[in-house]
Amino acid sequence: MKKRLSFLERAAAVPHLVWTLLFIIGPLLFVLYFAFTDNDGAFTFANIAHLSSYAHIFFVSICFSVVATAFCLLIGYPLALAMARAKPSTQKLLLVLLMLPMWISLLIRTYSLMTLLDNGGLVNSLLRAMGLAPWHMVGTGGAVVLGMIYDFLPYMVLPIYTSMTKLDKRYLEAAADLGCNPCQTLFRVTLPLTAPGIFSGITMVFVPSISTFYISQKLGGGNFDLIGDTIERQFQYTSTYHIGAAISLVMMLLIIASVAIFGRFADKEEEGMLA
């Protein structure tokens, strides 16, 4: 009886295993293969060595992602705080409003943002109607960052909101009891105790920001070449697969490194959270 069950259990895992092999492990191996071979299929470090000429692209991408992540945190943390303190019914409504955009395709959202910000778009029409000078937005770095913030803000708010709702109110009372005014309570108790939420929010915004290509193409008007754009371009021609794979590999390592660093912070905080 027991043996049969364990066979069934193993059988149940098979679809997942096949999926993982086909769509996760397989592609990863392909990336590795292409990154370390040339057009004739011979082993080489040339692709990796060639990456130094893409250094500025990495730099610009990281800058954009860091700025977008920072803004998401600055907007998202107070928003999560306000949500967690609202009445339960209001909380539900705010959550739905926050998640609603996530039900619409990212491409459509980005495209709509582009039409809004365009020179002949709604925002500029309004500015003109109010007698103000039109403001050239699409094609600027600001528009790209705005697009990232707009698309990824929910990923910052949700984990922070979750850690806030888990925060025991007694800690806030203890802080007030010991002499904290509401502002001191926020910085000395709420902020450190919701750090795990902050770290996972940062990871969840930073990672898609650094790998996006659609946002920079549409809202950057082709003026900004980010890692995502570069990778996409390399994979349009078979001859540059190898460079594309090398860039992908390095970006993956970058992301893994940053996730691991943030993860360490988050773990450390959670250790202390165990009562």
């Binding site: 025991d168 007694r170 203890a174 905080e269």
Partner: peptide
């Protein structure tokens, strides 16, 4: 008067020590 302005301190049920 909010708690932080009162010359009163509390030992809470289950202590509420700051875990961090």
């Amino acid at each position: 008067l909010p708690p932080y302005r009162r010359p009163i301190n509390t030992v809470f049920q289950k202590y509420a020590l700051f875990p961090h």
